[in-house]
Amino acid sequence: MRNQGQVVTKTMILSHVWGYSFNPGTNVVDVLISRLREKVDRDFEPKLLHTVRGVGYVLKAG
């Protein structure tokens, strides 16, 4: 919520949320975000979690 409207990268997510400072070789963050999206956005409009291709994710309404 702190970074609402800002694009956050996968590495940032990994280090801020889980405390891992490394560049994962797997799509660990993508998988976790898609799980989160299922819980947050599946049955609601407008969608809140948006993918910024190649960079990361952004949390914003609309």
């Binding site: 990268t9 590495t11 400072s21 490394f22 560049n23 910024v52 291709r53 190649g54 960079v55």
Partner: peptide, 20 residues
């Protein structure tokens, strides 16, 4: 721009890991 961000993100990660 997306490609540039992607590359710089990668380079930052690399630098940090190399420092570690």
């Amino acid at each position: 721009l997306v490609t540039c961000l992607e590359e710089s993100e990668r380079m930052l990660a690399m630098l940090e890991t190399l420092m570690d």
